[in-house]
């Protein structure tokens, strides 16, 4: 059986290596992906279309906004599915297992984390808010924000973190993020454009059509950030305790 599994692996390997012969060399500017009119259009016109210096954010939140919206929905659904799978499952009573030990939160660890968490959270806001100008964006900021809460849960215990970020908030915040994203899209639709055509927002805000896209992207990224923060923490809280939400790692 074990030997049998090498057959598909080797077949795939030989086929892929044979195909690698025809791929462009490392860093070649003539690679088909780099020469394609789509990516050249993004590089050449992002500045004129949206006034956003970071092309990745512009492509993510504007040109491919529909994709990113359902991306966020996927993250939200995954969080809800984990909640549904693990909630009310398994051990109701707390039976102590042989590898579980009672330990007080360590003094050095907790005091270090006390200093670190505000810095991490401010950095998360920075990454989120500067997603257009420098590398960053909603997903990255959201993950950093969620990580700060996970750090609290790791250094004290899960209950301490859950006081600061209750689990029913995560559902609400996750839904709110998607609502914000879809709301901006719907608003631009009601103003006469297509779904997620942010330039129509210039009709109600005192900015040019390009700057309307610039600012709508920030709104969209905030929505993404909210959902990702909530779901990251919810995933950790549920997975580390088998859904009991007591006595985590």
């Amino acid at each position: 059986m074990k030997l049998l599994s090498y057959i598909p692996v080797l077949v795939v390997g030989v086929l892929l290596l044979y195909a690698a012969k025809d791929f462009p060399e490392w860093g070649s500017p003539d690679a088909p992906a780099s020469k394609s009119p789509v990516s050249s259009h993004f590089i050449a016109n992002t500045g004129v279309d949206t006034e956003v210096p970071n092309m990745v954010t512009a492509v993510l939140a504007d040109y491919r906004g529909f994709d990113t919206m359902f991306e966020t929905v996927v993250v939200f659904i995954a969080g809800m599915a984990v909640l549904a799978i693990l909630k009310n499952s398994g051990r109701k009573k707390l039976v102590k297992r042989e590898f579980e030990v009672d330990a007080e939160p360590d003094l050095i660890v907790t005091n270090t984390v006390r200093l670190l968490v505000p810095v991490i959270q401010i950095f998360a806001f920075y990454v989120l808010a500067h997603g257009h100008v420098s590398p960053g964006g909603g997903f990255q900021g959201g993950v950093l924000m969620g990580a700060s809460f996970i750090l609290v849960a790791l250094s004290w215990d899960l209950e301490t973190a859950l006081i600061r970020f209750p689990l029913n908030w995560t559902t609400i915040l996750g839904g709110l993020g998607i609502f914000l994203y879809a709301g901006i899209g719907l608003l631009s639709m009601f103003l006469g454009g297509e779904f997620l055509d942010y330039s129509e927002l210039a009709n109600i805000f005192p900015v040019s059509r390009e700057m309307a896209r610039y600012h709508a992207m920030l709104g969209v990224e905030i929505g993404v950030g909210l959902t990702v923060t909530a779901i990251m923490f919810s995933l950790y809280a549920n997975l580390s305790t088998e859904g009991r939400l007591q006595r985590g790692l």
């Binding site: 992906a33 996927v74 993250v75 995954a78 990251m232």
Partner: peptide, 17 residues
């Protein structure tokens, strides 16, 4: 090329989910 970066950003997020 920004396009692969965008596609992989979404792939990483779906991978975590």
């Amino acid at each position: 090329n920004p396009l692969p970066h965008v596609l992989m950003l979404t792939a990483i997020v779906v991978g975590v989910a």
